[in-house]
Design a protein around this nucleic acid. Structure first.
Lengths: 204, 204
DNA sequence: TTATTTAAGAAACCAAAAGTTTCTTATTGA
DNA sequence: TCAATAAGAAACTTTTGGTTTCTTAAATAA
């Protein structure tokens, strides 16, 4: 009988997988090297040799998943709608999908809990995705302006980010985001807001 | 020299105080009975006799503070504005203030981290405050309808809760919520959204 | 194929900190 | 003043995270 002994990337994949499972069930606070080793069916020294802290391991595990699922990022989408509403629906639906897959554990585990230095690392990640989100909205707005649906594309970043942040909130609270929320967002919030900017009353 | 030895409510207050301090600095993950005992200047058995887990203690400590600061709840506010916009500003500003005081630690510490059963307890708390929030918005909308500013008060709870949830999101991410966000919310989001409902185009 | 290198896994060990028990004594109030 | 209650000190147990050592499987090259 040949004792099978995994090593290299194969072993690493198993460790990442185990890490993500613990992250999902117990959060970052419950992630310890001994637990990971047990869950991955390997030994503690293997983990300690590779990573300095559970936090670093968690980042690696999440990035591994993002890399694996990195087909169809919100960034490089081709918009095909023929109205502001259609384009917005495309952006938001795509966002919800990516959120409900890898985003689920990624966002949920990484907020709160993080003390001092760790917070900055997460801030970086959020900032990056914010850039992508804003970029997507900008393109949608430009298309809408070309069509003549809106009269300006000059909106604050706060406004542009609001829909994404609101959806993320619901990920925090472990709710499942359904089509109803997306529809509400697009039809009752975003479209009116963007159209409203062209109107008269701009109070200071 | 008389050895002073606290007991009863006096002692309990000190324990709650210490609990909140640890909660604020290290989060729920860092809250342990020995630490609380040390911080409160008492002994471990005192804590162990009263609470079953750090989580239960944390709930008690936060509720204690809520009870103490329970003057001026969003619920029983008398609205004095003479427009939909004014009333909305009052609601949201009050929310931000309460959020920036006890809400700060309360919300920040309790999301994520929570595994299974704990999540449901928190959901309860959030649900309760949601009820209050919706109630406040309802009253604002009724007043606006009476004034003739809007034609209906029939909006989904999702829509009514959106502003509160968006603000809470920013509390999560440890940002400070300024007047700019409140103004954006009221002028560029809420007022247009509520007014929009009366308009023609209601797509399915 | 065999020798050599690399790295995984088992097991024993250490240290720190959470949790428990016992006993003493201050405080309250009958 | 005495009895009942509850706080605090201290010793102890248990758990668990982290480290070290050694054995041996797997990969690589001679």
């Amino acid at each position: 009988m040949t004792k099978t002994r995994r090593r290299g990337v194969e072993l690493e994949k198993a460790i990442f997988q185990a890490t993500r499972e613990i992250l999902a069930t117990e959060g970052l606070a419950g992630l310890t090297f001994p637990k990971v080793a047990a869950a991955a069916g390997t030994s503690k020294p293997v983990i300690y040799r590779r990573w300095k802290s559970p936090f670093e391991l968690s980042l690696a595990a999440v990035q591994d998943q993002i890399k694996a699922e990195n087909n169809g990022r919100t960034d490089e989408v081709v918009f095909t709608g023929d109205s502001l509403r259609e384009d917005l629906m495309q952006v938001m639906k795509r966002f919800v999908i990516s959120m409900n897959t890898f985003g689920q554990s990624y966002v949920t585990t990484f907020f709160s809990v993080l003390n001092q230095e760790q917070g900055t690392v997460i801030s970086k990640i959020v900032e990056e995705s914010s850039t992508i989100d804003i970029h997507a909205i900008d393109r949608v707005l430009e298309r809408a302006q070309t069509r003549g649906e809106i009269t300006t594309t000059a909106f604050s970043n706060d406004l542009k980010l609001l829909p994404f942040e609101w959806l993320r909130y619901h990920v925090f609270t472990r709710e499942t985001i359904g089509d109803d929320k997306v529809k509400l967002l697009v039809d009752d919030i975003l479209v009116p807001a963007y159209r409203h900017a062209g109107s008269a009353s701009e109070k200071a």
